[in-house]
């Protein structure tokens, strides 16, 4: 903590360097709030995610033109849309740092865990916010009937958690590369495939398919926990 004595005046020049960056809720919140303010003023990620998440079901609705799709196809289409919308938008949080040349300052001035969890939290909120608009549009345009709303919401939340956590680690990995966006997608798709399959399975049940949803939800929860643990353990290596 910074000492009670005001640290920032000329008279305090001789005082030693303030404490190293701390991993604290305050620091996580600061990273989240920075992303929020930045996004509020540019709306770059929201536009990218929303554009794809809304345009894809519109295009799909024209191509199926009145046909009734099976729950499995609907669930696959929904999660393919959500995955690619996320891939377009979620890497922005890291790309922006590289473009602003602020990655260096982040490395010097922030605890790595605070950066990771702040960005993961922000990506999760961003996904939820855009899905609030995109999912109802998908349901209406493709005439999807949600027969089990709690299951549908749970599948979305578990899927979003996995996407947000994975994008935190993978975004940092790809941020230094020249083709950042392409690299992010190239790494993320194979890693997120098991989550996507389970999410589609659970969502299909929510749309009325007769499968076992419990095992799909368990697989998603386990995968989220594994991603969380891997991010926590590996982020320092990626960051430094």
């Amino acid at each position: 903590m910074i000492p009670a004595e005001p640290a920032l005046t000329r008279a305090s020049a001789a005082m030693p360097c303030v404490a190293p960056p701390l991993m604290s809720l305050r620091a996580v919140r600061a990273v989240f709030w920075k992303e929020w303010q930045s996004e509020w003023r540019t709306r770059a990620s929201v536009k990218a995610i929303a554009l794809f998440a809304i345009a894809a079901p519109i295009a799909l609705s024209f191509s199926v033109a009145g046909q009734r799709l099976s729950p499995e196809v609907l669930a696959g289409a929904l999660w393919t849309t959500l995955l690619f919308a996320a891939l377009i938008g979620l890497s922005r949080a890291w790309v922006k740092e590289e473009e602003n040349n602020t990655l260096a300052l982040l490395r010097l001035g922030c605890a790595s865990e605070a950066v990771l969890w702040g960005k993961v939290l922000w990506n999760g909120v961003l996904l939820l916010a855009t899905q609030l608009a995109a999912v109802p549009i998908f349901i209406v345009l493709l005439d999807a009937r949600v027969s089990n709303v709690p299951l549908f919401v749970l599948a979305l939340l578990l899927g979003d958690a996995g996407l947000a956590i994975a994008s935190g680690l993978l975004g940092a990995m790809s941020s230094g590369a020249r083709a950042r966006g392409a690299l992010f997608c190239a790494i993320a798709v194979p890693i997120l495939l098991p989550l996507l399959v389970s999410a589609s399975w659970a969502t299909a049940v929510a749309f009325g398919a007769r499968h076992d949803a419990q095992s799909a939800l368990q697989a998603m929860a386990a995968y989220d926990v594994a991603l969380l643990a891997a991010s926590w353990m590996l982020f320092d290596f990626v960051w430094n």
Partner: peptide, 28 residues
């Protein structure tokens, strides 16, 4: 570090820039 390539958050205000770095090391 003060470098010429302006590592600042351009979408944030002057105050938000400084507050962000301050919050990383505790309460100011």
């Amino acid at each position: 570090l003060c470098a010429p390539d302006a590592p600042l958050y351009r979408e944030l205000t002057v105050g938000e820039n400084l507050e962000f770095w301050a919050q990383m090391r505790g309460a100011v």
